[in-house]
Amino acid sequence: MSIDLSTFNFSEISNYWAYALGIAVSFYGTVSWFSSKHLSKESKEHLSLWLWGSYESTWLRQFCLLFDAVFGRRHLSWACFLRSSVASFITVFILYFLLGDILQEKGRIGVYLDTKDLIIYALILNVISDYLSLFETRWLLNKFSSISSIWNQLALLAFDALITAGIIWFAIEAYLFVLGKPAPSLVELVAVFSIFSIFFYSTFLTSIWAWLYCLSSWCVRLISKTRLNELLDIEHNPGHQIALIGGIAIFLIIAILFPFFKDSELSNTSLFDRYLCDTFPKATCDDLARLSTNEKQTLFFLEKNC
């Protein structure tokens, strides 16, 4: 599948990269602030020693310590439940803000979602589901925290993401079943063709956090063994260095994916959308026909759907 660079608008690319930079900087600021204010001196020392390779451990154990610092050591407690609920609402509102232009103005989900509905849906779908997902992630990473192979760690994170997807998908299906309404397919949720996509993705907060922590900590650990180590203050601010690498990773990932998710000026659909129509025609082509502003492209989507 080729990428048509002729359809790119420089101002749109600049805005997109500014968007990516804003998310990356926000991530860095949040993680840095938290690590400096809430990580104990002992936790920072352990993290620094591991990043230097001074003792045998895994990033999983370090992440579990960070987990405890954020949500508390006792998961079955009101304090943990309240913190999880606050994190759920914050994530839902952030996603609503980030995807607002796509969902509302470009009509991707086909309906209007106001703030009142957003709060109600988050309360019904996310509070319990995210708390369960948080428990599952915490238990799974603690259970297998001794795994040292990077490939086994990545497989563990992928398994965690699958379980998380199952939890929130079941919650959405159950809610719509009670109301007697048809439920969106998993493909529609992933492709953001449903009003429930925001609540689906918000449940992945801890999973995304774990992926970024894994990527960042391994990068920092590799850098610590080179001359670039002089640029990082691993001894005094290990959390800041992980936040820095994580922020850079977020920016690069968003920037690299831009060509595949940018809407074409001719049809208001992206390369990723057209790939979904080719791969899952029954689940996506009708939505793309509704979105497309090109008559020829609309007919193509309708034919693929049939």
Rank of each mutant, 00 (worst) to 15 (best):
Q104C: 00
P184T: 09
L60D: 02
A174C: 00
W50P: 03
D4T: 07
I242F: 04
F301M: 15
S43V: 03
N268Y: 04
G107S: 10
F196N: 06
L65W: 09
S202E: 12
I119F: 15
E235R: 15
L222K: 11
H46C: 00
N229S: 15
N9L: 03
L299Y: 04
D278K: 13
S185Q: 07
I147H: 03
N142T: 06
S148M: 06
A165Q: 11
S133D: 13
L212Q: 11
S88F: 00
L141G: 03
L215C: 11
L157T: 05
W33N: 04
N229T: 10
D286T: 06
L5Q: 05
I109D: 08
S207R: 03
C285Q: 08
I109V: 15
L212N: 12
K304W: 03
C285W: 09
S133V: 05
S36H: 10
S6V: 02
Y175K: 09
R290M: 08
A155E: 01
E105G: 00
R61W: 05
V92L: 09
L276C: 14
L232P: 03
A255L: 10
E230K: 14
S267P: 01
F177M: 11
E295A: 12
G246H: 04
S197N: 09
I94R: 02
G166W: 06
A183R: 11
F97G: 08
V92R: 01
A183P: 01
W169L: 10
L21K: 01
A243H: 07
F89I: 13
I119Y: 11
R108Y: 15
D286L: 13
L231A: 12
V70I: 15
Y112R: 11
L82D: 00
E295I: 09
Y213D: 02
W50K: 06
S270T: 10
S54I: 00
W169Q: 06
L140G: 00
S84G: 14
S224I: 03
L103M: 13
A210E: 04
S146I: 07
I128N: 04
R221A: 13
G22I: 05
I102G: 00
T298V: 10
S43Y: 04
V31W: 12
L113W: 03
F89H: 11
L157I: 14
H38N: 12
R138I: 01
I242T: 09
L215K: 00
A255Y: 01
E56R: 15
G180L: 06
T279V: 15
R290K: 14
Y19D: 11
R138H: 12
E42I: 07
